[in-house]
Computed example of a mutant assay.
Amino acid sequence: MTKMIKTFALANALALSLSACGSTGSSLGGLGSPYGLVRAGQTVNVGSGAMSVTSPREWNRQGGFSFTDVRWVEDWTLNGPYLDGITFVTALPDNKRLIWQEYKADRQVPRFRSTMTAPEVASLLETLFRVEGGSVEFRTLGLAPRTFLGANGFQLDFEHLDGDEVWRKGRAVGAVIDGRLYLVMLDAARAHYYAQALPDYEAIVRSAARRR
């Protein structure tokens, strides 16, 4: 997740190099690449393996982990993480964070609690973007009930302005099931890239299934 919301300098370089290939779903793979290809129609287990999704076209899957990643979270991108990304949260347990942080970090991202309501999860995501993503403005556009993975969940729509002066727009669909957080989140540059990725995102959300 931090690759999508924090490492803007690296992501910008990736985006520039991939500007011509995003609409075709070309892979970021290659020698030394941190990404692998998810093919159209392929069903894969994401994050901790507690959830599977089917990709409607080729997407690029983050491979391996950085020291800030946690095993319940996985990121995909179509055009490079500076421009768009989908984050999967798969059965995040009680008292765990969406990212790894130093114990003495000045600004802490709250831990997920199994009793959290939809507004509290929305607040957690906003804090994540402000603390780790450097968002200087965050707007909640809507928060409504939505069924996810067969459970009573929620849909959060939002937009945020980051330190790089780019407005981004997002949607998160999730649910707390058996005390664990399951969530799929789209976050993309508001101009063009959000609308481009939204149909794929919705197809992926509809395809999501729990794995026991």
Rank of each mutant, 00 (worst) to 15 (best):
55 S>D: 05
61 R>P: 05
62 Q>H: 04
56 P>D: 01
50 A>C: 09
66 S>A: 12
75 D>K: 00
75 D>V: 01
68 T>V: 14
64 G>L: 09
53 V>M: 07
74 E>D: 09
73 V>E: 01
63 G>P: 13
63 G>V: 09
61 R>W: 01
51 M>K: 06
61 R>E: 02
71 R>I: 01
69 D>E: 12
58 E>S: 13
67 F>K: 10
76 W>H: 12
74 E>L: 06
50 A>V: 15
76 W>D: 02
51 M>W: 00
55 S>T: 14
46 V>D: 04
63 G>R: 11
56 P>E: 02
46 V>R: 13
65 F>I: 14
45 N>V: 09
49 G>K: 01
75 D>A: 06
68 T>D: 09
65 F>P: 06
44 V>G: 06
57 R>P: 04
73 V>D: 00
45 N>Y: 12
57 R>Q: 07
71 R>H: 10
61 R>L: 05
72 W>N: 12
59 W>L: 11
50 A>S: 07
75 D>Y: 00
51 M>G: 01
59 W>Y: 14
65 F>L: 11
64 G>S: 07
68 T>M: 11
73 V>Y: 01
57 R>G: 03
54 T>C: 07
58 E>P: 08
68 T>Q: 13
61 R>H: 03
46 V>I: 15
59 W>M: 10
76 W>A: 03
45 N>H: 10
45 N>Q: 12
45 N>S: 11
70 V>F: 07
69 D>I: 05
61 R>Q: 14
64 G>V: 11
64 G>A: 11
67 F>H: 09
47 G>L: 07
67 F>M: 10
48 S>E: 12
63 G>T: 10
44 V>H: 08
56 P>V: 00
75 D>M: 02
66 S>Q: 15
64 G>D: 13
49 G>L: 06
65 F>M: 13
74 E>V: 02
75 D>T: 02
45 N>M: 13
76 W>K: 08
53 V>T: 05
54 T>N: 11
75 D>N: 07
75 D>H: 00
47 G>V: 05
56 P>S: 08
72 W>L: 07
71 R>N: 07
50 A>F: 15
47 G>A: 06
64 G>Y: 11
44 V>Y: 01
48 S>Q: 06
50 A>Y: 10
62 Q>G: 02
53 V>G: 12
56 P>W: 00
53 V>I: 14
51 M>C: 12
71 R>S: 08
54 T>W: 02
46 V>Q: 04
64 G>W: 15
65 F>C: 07
48 S>Y: 06
66 S>K: 12
48 S>P: 14
72 W>D: 10
69 D>S: 08
61 R>A: 04
74 E>G: 04
44 V>W: 00
60 N>V: 05
73 V>C: 04
53 V>Q: 05
63 G>Y: 08
54 T>G: 09
46 V>Y: 04
57 R>H: 10
57 R>L: 07
70 V>I: 15
69 D>T: 13
72 W>Y: 15
67 F>R: 13
64 G>I: 06
47 G>Q: 06
